[in-house]
Computed example of a mutant assay.
Amino acid sequence: MSGAPSGRPAPPYVDATKPSIARVYDGFLNGSDNYEVDREVVRSVLKTAPEAADLAVENRRFLIRACKYLAEQAGITQFLDCGSGLPTAENTHTVVQRIAPDSRVVYVDNDPLVLAHSRALLEQVKGAAIVSEDIFDPEALLQNDAVRSQLDWDAPIALLHMGTLHHYNGEHARTRQDIMRSYIDALPLGSYVAISHFLDPEDEYSATARRMEDVFLHSMMGSGTFSTTAELERLFNGLKLIAPGLVRCVDWRPEDAAIKSLNVAQRCIAGGVALKQ
């Protein structure tokens, strides 16, 4: 099929005529598991904001730092990673098992390519699994046999929703806050919730954020909403935000020296980690 990665035909379980969120992110990260239809979305967004690839880059960096914090400082050894996407060099289980080898990670996705690649990757990995569920249907997801059996629901769990909620278009006739409330209500006390999301910074960069949003929403992908800080705070449903709070991803416990000059994309994705007490 024309436009397949490395000239290979798309496997029969992949529809290469429609863009996939996971494959579009892979394209932004210069990965090889994407198709021409995905790259068209990437090109469209880059025309509006040439630095837009950093939305994916900063999302991934925030995931890594948040997982390090949760494993190293919060002592969490169980992770439910919703919308995990295509495997990369530093996956959640790679990061946390380096710190705590007995950590357990359950990935959730329903993209066929993600499922195939992740199952192959995790086949020989102890303590990590992937399940196929709709991450915007928490009631069904939380009743999945593997989700129930792989994690101890009497002990703290870290719930990760990294770069996922801005792709929710109301398919389940409920708000993003309602979806997160269902997850949070099910979590044991002492659990953590980590979220990253496209941000409308409500400053001179707002116009560019909204232009990027318009391109995402009117592309074949059809999703990618930018929200204000107040809107994003509501997704945590009153949980205690861990310092420095809900901030731009690049500003959340950076490991390197502070970046003096941020591009528009780095200013337009935010993240936070919160504790259920």
Rank of each mutant, 00 (worst) to 15 (best):
R210D: 05
E255P: 02
A22S: 03
R234F: 06
A158V: 13
S261L: 09
L86D: 10
V14Q: 00
N34R: 10
F226S: 07
L189S: 11
A56S: 15
E171N: 09
G272K: 02
L122S: 08
T94M: 06
H93G: 07
F216P: 01
A257Q: 15
S191N: 01
H197W: 09
G190H: 14
L189V: 11
S206V: 01
M221S: 05
I99G: 03
Y192P: 05
L262C: 03
A257R: 13
V250P: 11
A10G: 01
L121R: 13
I184T: 07
A16K: 02
P87Y: 08
V57Q: 00
E204L: 05
A10L: 03
P12K: 03
N237Y: 08
L113H: 07
L141P: 13
L113A: 07
V264W: 00
L86G: 11
N237G: 05
Q143I: 11
P201D: 08
A120S: 14
S182T: 14
P112D: 03
N91T: 15
I184D: 02
E233A: 08
D178G: 10
A22K: 04
A129I: 13
H172Q: 04
Q97H: 05
V264Q: 06
H166P: 03
D81Q: 13
P138Q: 02
I21S: 05
I135F: 12
L142R: 10
